[in-house]
Write a protein that binds this DNA or RNA. Structure first.
Lengths: 327, 327
DNA sequence: CTCATTTATGTAACCGGTTACACTCATTGT
DNA sequence: ACAATGAGTGTAACCGGTTACATAAATGAG
């Protein structure tokens, strides 16, 4: 690969001039500019971004850490982030944390050493101090962790309440909840919303709240057990859509008809909701918008623009489909 | 952020010694090492990877270009790539090409300038010359483009034949095909496999091959039209699973029962197959394995190890589920 | 006791850009 | 006619690491 000095030499100018042509700043005679550009072309010169980054202390790269890109919520988010940042000349480094603090910390360290300009985290198992320690702009998505850290989330509790109220509205008498992981705070918020509505009902028992770990498989097993032990359950609010599909599977296997014997509603609004049968009702998050907002906020932080608000909470949207549509 | 020179100064040694401690090479006295390490700790020193990359001409970063991470095939692939490369200390830069040559080229340029150590491309709309122009290791996945470029693919044609034969085997008399995009060669291969089996049947007509662009939505519309015009169709082989779910949707809407009136089989083996109703039969690719193989091959190329084979073709696995299980 | 190694450390060049500063002309205003 | 300003270009330091080479003390073999 040709370097700037080679171009300079061949064009008979100094490196400063080549740099000026490259960045179109400073004075350069039109003749000279033309000659330099031609030489660059002839040598197939491409600037070395590593060298540039070293001096400028900015890499035009941002880090995106998600729990697991395989979870259908995150590709959409990642896509939004990429679309927005790419437009402004940034590329993204992707990392999966598997919700493990060590992996998260490891990525944070790596990203810091790679001099990324900013970080978007859609996962957080780390104490705030660790986050604050790094002096790079950071935006947290999907899970609020601390007032000091810019955050984009949705109204989990409110959404959960809407979900459960919807189930009640269509006549469910015994509503259970499949809960996400204990250490994920949006899972707790959604559970709280559920409890807000039914926690004081005379029929309520803690047994109606079971763990599904945000995965289809664990939810499926949990749902099978739950529905066997409590055939009276006629409505289930799953903490996310993935778990809701697990419930659908369980019901199907147990010969429980949906939505008549059992109504099911999820949370997130991933595409998959429309491929199940019946289609899955859900509280849809504006996933793409969240990604966009996070990316825009991060870029503003990087470019030190005035930030209007560093905490944004989006509403979620109740979408009624076959799994809760009773005739 | 502290630099090496600061550490050196405070520890009363030269930068060379600090570097030697950092990389554990060369001779360093135990006392000195200890003092340097303590100083690093005290200053919270972290090496600047950009500076290191500039000198070493390697960034421990690889580029991964996919058509669209939102397509469920690719997160699994990306995950495999990340798992393998991460283990060896690499991080990945993710890019979506949307199958557009300009975007692909743009990413290739960016990655070159960012000095990535290698590239995995799961998309290709570019002429081989452009690929060959860049003197970085590259591995192409999912689509073969040229014998000279290391490639990991699956037996598309053979798999397609197996799919269609399976449909015939369960008694389908009129089998149609929803095809992927014209410019994607694995789509053409799968179509070819379909034609191999039924192209010469007396009932065959080119109208039985319709375009679904590898998306659920377009496949859905195409399938509705196809099934309306040709109610005699009793089997559909979709070029990928996403399109197969579109067919399921269409059949559902038209009141066609699956699998009895219409058997449907897809290709890829994405997770979603198990959440549809009935569950989707498919030709499963070993997606994760493919990602692993690509990543391992790329790393071998980067590290200039002896490559045993630079072209690998994996078999696909016929998985029979409800959508083709007739009683 | 001498010479060859091994151990230990420092100096300075280098990677490939960017930019502060200096310098030379050519214009322009007074 | 001369100072001030602007256009055009070059030199060299700098970003923060790595490493070739030089130097010197300690160790060991003969």
């Amino acid at each position: 690969m040709a370097t700037m000095r080679e171009v300079a030499k061949k064009a008979g100018v100094s490196v400063a001039t080549v740099s000026r042509v490259l960045n179109s700043n400073g004075y350069v005679n039109d003749e000279t500019r033309k000659k330099v550009l031609e030489t660059m072309d002839a040598l197939k010169y491409k600037p070395n971004n590593v060298a540039r980054s070293l001096f400028k202390k900015q890499t035009k790269t941002i880090g995106l850490i998600v729990p697991d890109i395989t979870n259908p919520f995150f590709p959409q988010l990642a896509r939004a982030v990429e679309d927005v940042t790419n437009e402004k000349g940034y590329t993204i480094i992707l990392g999966n944390s598997d919700e493990k603090p060590e992996k998260e910390q490891r990525y944070l360290d790596i990203l810091e050493q790679k001099y990324v300009d900013g970080i978007i985290m859609a996962t957080n198992t780390l104490p705030i101090e660790h986050i604050k320690l790094l002096d790079k702009p950071i935006v947290v998505v999907d899970r609020a962790i601390h007032a000091d850290v810019p955050t984009i989330v949705v109204q989990n509790r409110k959404g959960a309440k809407a979900a459960v109220n919807h189930l009640k509205g269509i006549g469910c008498q015994r509503i259970a909840h499949i809960k996400g992981p204990e250490h994920v705070d949006n899972a707790n918020e959604r559970c709280q919303g559920y409890l807000d509505i039914v926690g004081t009902e005379p029929w309520f028992t803690p047994e109606f709240v079971v763990d599904g770990n945000y995965t289809t498989k664990e939810s499926y097993h949990a749902a099978v057990k739950l529905l066997r032990n409590h055939p009276e359950i006629d409505g289930i609010f799953a903490g996310n859509d993935l778990m809701a599909t697990g419930v659908l599977k369980a019901a199907h296997e147990l010969g429980i008809s949906i939505p008549d014997e059992l109504a099911v509603i999820g949370f997130d609004g991933i595409d998959m909701c429309e491929t199940t049968h019946p289609e899955l009702s859900t509280l849809a998050q504006p996933i793409y918008q969240i990604g966009e907002a996070a990316a825009e906020l991060l870029i503003d932080l990087i470019e030190k623009k005035q930030i209007s608000e560093s905490f944004k909470e989006y509403p979620v949207d109740l979408i009624i489909r076959g799994s809760t549509k009773r005739t």
